[in-house]
Every structure is written in C-alpha cells, then in structure tokens.
C-alpha cells in the first residue's frame, strides 16, 4: 500500500485479529496561479481542498476543487489535461517547484494524492518560459515545440511504397536506443524545470532518435542544424548541464542524448 494512504486499525472479534484499512481523508491548502488571459497580470490565490482521498489523482483533486468553485459561482481553474494516463503530454503544472510534482518518472495526471499528507500546502504554477506564454491560469502555449519539429523533426519520406520493413535490419541495441529517445511526450517539463528554461532535452531526444537509425542518416546534419536554430529562435535558454531536465522528465529521458546532440552539432559544423 502507498505510504500514508490508509489508516490501519486492528480490532479483535471472537479472538480473531482483523485488520481494517480505510482511506484517510486529507485537507490541503493550495496556492494556485490564476491569470485570466495572456494580458492579465495574474496572481497566486489560496484555496482550501478538503476531503481529498489519497486514491485520487492530482488532476482529479483539481476536478473536485473546480466542481466546488463552480458551485460557488467562481471560475474554475484552467489546466491542460487529456489522456490522463501519462502519454499524451498535455498535462503540465509545477507542483511545489517541481514539474509534474514530486514523483520520479510520473506525469501530473499519474501523480496520486497518496504522495501528499493531510495539512500539506501545495503551490501550483504554470510551466514558465519565455517561449511558453500563459493562456489562462495553468494553461500555457507550447506550440514552440511544434515549430521546432516542423524544421527538421522528421525523416523525409513520402507516403508510398518504401522497401520492405525487414529489408534493412537494425541492431536491437540501436532500436532500443532510438526508442529510449523516442519516448518523449513533448510535455515541456524539461523546459519548465530547467533553471534556464532550455529546451535541449526535447530537441536532443528527437535528434538522437533519428541520428541513431539508418533511415535518419541522409538528413542527419541538416536536421540538427535546423532544429537547434529553431530552438534558439523560440527564445529558450541555454543548457548549463545541471540535468534538472532529466530529473523532471516523466519519461526519464537521459541527458546523454544532449551530449549526443552536441556531438552531432559539432560534426555538422566541421562538415
């Protein structure tokens, strides 16, 4: 059982010891960033979240808060979310200073309240970067990532009849390496957690995936140049190798991919 999620009582009935588990209910204090639109200045607002079950996900906890806000005729808190199973990359949130909250390798939607305890104060803020403008409350615009992808995050191949999929064997290790990089969900946690709001991990993951597959070779140099340029043009910060990105990444993408991208970029400059 998760830490703190259940109160355990032991009772004796007819000389038999029974263990009863029942959910512990939590009362929390939330400090949430509220900002009506991009032009609004915005501020932190305090909310009480009472009777929260430890089995709720973090977003379900916010759903409950929102239902109560609506009942009180207050605008609900806007936050991005969609699949709620940790794969679409829509959910975000800085929770107590940490992108996607305190659990390693976990998106906000998969973060459960059993990792908090009764009486906790939780600060909830949007992902912050010059390249991610706030749209409303906790919702930010991450289209900068899409624009980076449009400059080189692909292999140029038209739909048609390429060679048979097995015509070109790819060593298992290479395929696994590419897959490790390809797991990126494009949520932007790396940017949000980075002290410099750098997007290196996101870009590096895509560059590394293709640089490691035979299909990605022809455009390898062009790709890394284009994607790095696009990243810089969007106004992300520089990488100072502090690896906060890797620590915050819900898919635990390795910073070694950044080294890989640095290598690729270096070679592209020599060619």
């Amino acid at each position: 059982m998760g830490r703190g999620s259940f109160i355990v009582d032991r009772i004796e009935i007819h000389d038999t010891l029974f263990t009863i588990h029942y959910p512990q209910i939590m009362n929390l204090t939330l400090y949430i960033w509220r900002q009506r639109n991009a032009k609004d200045k915005g501020k932190m607002v305090t909310y009480m979240a009472d009777d929260i079950s430890p089995d709720m996900s973090f977003l379900e906890m916010l759903d409950v808060v929102n239902e109560r806000l609506i009942e009180d005729n207050e605008d609900p808190i806007a936050f991005d979310h969609d699949c709620r199973e940790g794969i679409c990359g829509t959910c975000s949130l800085i929770i107590n200073g940490r992108a996607h909250g305190p659990e390693k390798g976990t998106t906000t939607c998969q973060l459960h309240m059993r990792h908090f305890k009764d009486g906790d104060e939780i600060y909830i803020e949007p992902f912050r970067s010059r390249a991610f403008a706030v749209i409303r409350d906790l919702v930010v615009d991450r289209s900068a990532f899409d624009r980076i992808m449009q400059t080189g995050g692909f292999i140029t191949i038209n739909t048609g009849s390429p060679a048979d999929a097995n015509a070109l064997p790819i060593p298992k290790e290479d395929a696994e390496y590419a897959m490790d990089a390809a797991q990126c969900i494009g949520c932007g946690a790396c940017v949000a957690q980075c002290k410099n709001a750098s997007a290196m991990l996101f870009v590096a993951a895509k560059v590394s995936q293709f640089a490691h597959l035979p299909q990605g070779q022809p455009e390898r140099m062009k790709r890394v140049r284009a994607m790095v340029k696009a990243m810089d043009d969007e106004g992300f910060g520089n990488c100072t190798n502090q690896y906060e990105c890797e620590a915050a990444c819900p898919k635990e993408i390795s910073v070694n991919f950044i080294a890989k991208m640095n290598r690729e970029f270096l070679v592209s400059g020599l060619k």
Partner: peptide
C-alpha cells in the same frame, strides 16, 4: 540570456 528565458520566475 538564461535569465531572460524565464521572465516570470516561480513563487516556490
């Protein structure tokens, strides 16, 4: 440059 990349910093 890095300071400018995050114009609004986190409260916590």
């Amino acid at each position: 440059e890095n300071k400018l990349a995050r114009p609004v910093s986190y409260h916590k």
